[in-house]
Design a protein around this nucleic acid. Structure first.
Length: 594
RNA sequence: GGCCCGGUAGUUCAGAUGGUUAGAACGCUAGCCUGUCACGCUAGAGGCCGAGGGUUCGAGUCCCUUCCGGGUCGCCA
């Protein structure tokens, strides 16, 4: 630093420091050259402050300041002064202050940056991701990463205060069946064998309970080789937890304590505990989703009974085939939406496999609806009554298997909530969804698969149906949901060998497979396993919510794009032939595909 | 793998129906300017119109293929 030592960050300078000699270091946000007077706004992670160079008082210094350009790295020594009243910039945190420079060191020059580094940049994201280190200079991203740090810090503090120990688990682990696709790492020492990167430290944290650590937490990277989404990256971070000698209530209580403290300390928002709870069944019935956004209404209404014997074949058949007919009353949308907009809603419904979207626009003197002619007066009036339909309302119907009805109407509900402006974006609705189904049927594989994971305990009263009616068995699993995002989830685990063996059997895992993949775990469970359970929060999603963004890339320092590539480092990339040889690997990709 | 959207100076964009030398703003370079703060004024440089092929007398514009990126469905215990 050529002999200078920083005394303050830019916005640490306050009116009370006026008159002091200070040294600041940072990047040139902007240079304004007025001829004999040069203003430079200097930026560091705290913010910006104005530095003044005057040719009259110090021509040599002024000449040096002439060389300064955007993003140069400077050390500036000078006297902090209060600006005269007319020169105060009210839009700037340090707008009352400026540094009258007495020394200037150009610590480093900068090429002209590929995009202008400013808060509200409109530069293309591809360009910004290629130069992520520059994009990260923007206050917006700096704020997000600082927030992320605070969340992680608070998590460590909170769980530490509650007796949790942070223990690291391996990153090079063993591939286990079920769940997401694994990222694999070839072994040099064991030809033809592979490690898997953890999708979560699930088995290891359970084994830590067997070891008697009682309460474990870890802020840990997890890896899933699946396609990306706006809220999904192939590597992401969990706040991972496990506790011994607990039942559901203990786990929920400790974690809602965390979330309410998080909101109180970082957002100044009071989240009342205990949190609201919805069972999975109720969440689906009312919101068509297991992660409902409860900030607005537009709840689903079941009209199956009204139309079960209807002349409208679409409705009648759906009910007859074991499905249902459900509706949403989009209040006021009947008079607001054009035919084209209603058709667009139909397209949304079709995205989620609905065959169509039936609708009725309620008017003062009747109905506008393509399906009215198939329904009787009585059916229509009962439907209107159940949906509390008023003139101006738009009633939307989906008839199908429950699964499709919920999915289509659930997503339609979200679209309507947004379009009708029903969502208060300042609000945070935090709740638990409980009593998830233990299993779901995989049509493709023609077998039952675990909905959460295969170590999740069934609810005691449902164990009896494991053999006879697996779809009916509810589990001791729970998700935390905030504004329609699943921010965390967990379960009480199976700690009995017998029950675990039964679970493997139900999902079609043979004894040999179970032994081959989980033998070490099953063996461990023979030596005295405490009842235990836990959960994991998605740190990225929590940060997104608290930062008020809906893009996960905004809260990760070096994120990947939709093709799971890093535009900055160009990973993944080819490797030297020699490296492959050492790993006993031959690629079979055609030259043309490279 | 499917569907939708985008790709034109360094950046953000404009370029109806195909038609001279592809424009603007910001940025950049140079000059002038003592209170700017998106400083101002003057002048200037800057383009393989993502890539390849085709149609045409003529393509940024039309067609095909392909690459890159975004959103989404499938996928994500």
């Amino acid at each position: 630093m050529k002999g200078l030592k920083r005394t303050h960050r830019c916005t640490e300078l306050k009116v009370t420091d006026v008159g002091k000699e200070v040294v600041v270091m940072g990047w040139v946000q902007r240079r304004r050259d007025l001829g004999k007077l040069i203003f430079v706004t200097l930026r560091d992670r705290s913010g910006i402050i104005q530095v003044v160079f005057n040719s009259e008082t110090d021509p040599e210094l002024h000449a040096k300041a002439l060389q300064v350009r955007s993003e140069f790295v400077l050390a500036v020594k000078g006297t902090l002064e209060r600006r005269s009243e007319k020169d105060i910039n009210p839009n700037m945190e340090t707008g009352e202050l400026e540094i009258i420079a007495s020394e200037l060191r150009i610590l480093n020059k900068s090429e002209i940056p590929p995009f202008h580094i400013e808060e509200n940049t409109d530069a293309n994201e591809v360009l910004r991701l290629k130069h992520r280190y520059l994009d990260l200079r923007r206050p917006h991203l700096q704020r997000n990463l600082i927030l992320r740090h605070r969340i992680a810090k608070l998590a460590r503090d909170y769980y530490d205060e509650n007796g949790f120990l942070e223990i690291e688990t391996p990153v090079l682990t063993k591939s286990t069946p079920e769940g997401a696709r694994d990222y694999l790492v070839p072994s040099r020492i064991h030809p033809g064998k592979f490690y898997a990167l953890p999708q979560s430290p699930q088995i290891f944290k359970q084994l830590l309970m067997v070891s008697g650590f009682d309460r474990y937490m870890q802020i840990v990277k997890c890896f899933r080789d699946e396609d990306l989404r706006a809220d999904r990256q192939p590597e992401f971070t969990q706040i991972d937890l496990e506790m011994s000698f607990v039942d559901i209530e203990d786990v929920l209580a400790i974690n809602e304590g965390f979330i309410s403290r998080l909101f109180r300390e970082l957002k100044g928002i009071d989240i009342p505990v205990p949190l609201k709870r919805l069972t999975y069944a109720e969440a689906m019935e009312r919101f068509g989703s297991d992660k409902p956004d409860t900030r607005f209404g537009l709840e689903l209404v079941n009209i199956s009974d009204i139309v079960a014997a209807s002349g409208f074949k679409v409705f009648k058949d759906a009910v007859e085939n074991g499905g249902s007919v459900r509706a949403i009353n989009a209040r006021g949308a009947g008079s607001k939406f054009s035919r084209k907009e209603i058709d667009a809603l139909g397209e949304t419904a079709k995205t989620y496999k609905a065959k169509g979207l039936a609708w009725m626009a309620v008017e003062e003197d009747g109905l506008r609806s393509p399906i009215a002619k198939f329904l009787t007066e009585d059916e229509i009036s009962r439907i209107k009554e159940r949906l509390d339909a008023q003139p101006g309302d738009l009633l939307l119907f989906v008839a199908d298997k429950d699964e499709i009805v919920f999915d289509a109407l659930g997503h339609l509900r979200l679209e309507l909530g947004e379009k009708l402006g029903l969502i208060d974006h300042k609000r945070f609705d935090v709740l638990w969804v409980t009593e998830f189904p233990l299993l779901e049927y995989d049509e493709e594989e023609q077998r039952w698969v675990a909905k959460h994971h295969m170590f999740t305990a069934p609810m005691d009263e449902d164990i009896e149906y494991l053999d006879t009616d697996p779809g009916r068995v509810r589990s001791k699993a729970y998700d935390m949901v905030i504004n329609g995002y699943e921010v965390g989830g967990g379960s009480i685990r199976i700690h009995s060998q017998d029950l675990q063996a039964k679970m493997f059997k139900v999902i079609g895992l043979s004894d040999e497979q179970a032994k081959d993949r989980f033998g070490f775990m099953l063996e461990a469970f023979r030596y005295g396993t405490p009842p235990h359970g836990g959960m994991a929060f998605g740190l990225d999603r929590l940060t997104m919510l608290l930062a008020g963004t809906n893009n996960i890339r905004d809260v990760i320092a070096f994120p990947k794009v939709q093709t799971a590539a890093c535009l900055m480092s160009n990973a993944p990339d080819t490797v030297e032939e020699k490296q492959l040889d050492e790993l006993h690997i031959k690629t079979v990709i055609e030259e043309s595909e490279k």
